[in-house]
């Protein structure tokens, strides 16, 4: 599962930082029929979390109406130099996490 994370590396304290992420995932809705005419089993990423310094700052509950190869952008207030962790697991049990150090001056 490829993911692309876009977050500034260094900011001044108090800056509200935008986090952008693109995740390679089909987000199978469970409503679609495959080439053999049967329903393709649902497999979406039902939850996405962002931790900053180990504490949750943002979370999304996701439903099949979120597009394939999901894109998310959200914000966090930079307070101290700490790791920003992005975590998700799809319904097939594939876990993924990305971490970026956010340096605060």
């Amino acid at each position: 599962m490829v993911a692309m994370v876009n977050i500034p590396e260094t900011v001044t304290a108090g800056t509200v930082v935008e986090v952008k992420i693109l995740i390679s995932h089909p987000m199978e809705t469970g409503f679609r029929t495959g080439p053999d005419g049967t329903l393709v089993p649902r497999n979406i990423i039902p939850e996405f979390r962002c931790l900053y310094g180990g504490e949750e700052v943002f979370r999304a509950e996701i439903f099949p109406a979120v597009a394939a190869n999901p894109f998310l952008s959200f914000f966090l207030r930079a307070e101290q130099t700490a790791e920003v962790e992005l975590l998700w697991t799809d319904e097939a049990g594939q876990e993924h996490s990305e971490a970026r150090l956010l340096t605060v001056q």
């Binding site: 490829v2 692309m4 876009n6 952008k20 693109l22 390679s24 190869n69 894109f71 952008s73």
Partner: peptide, 12 residues
Amino acid sequence: EAANPGMLWVTE
């Protein structure tokens, strides 16, 4: 670039 889903394939 940070939002273009085609970049996932480029990255792969």
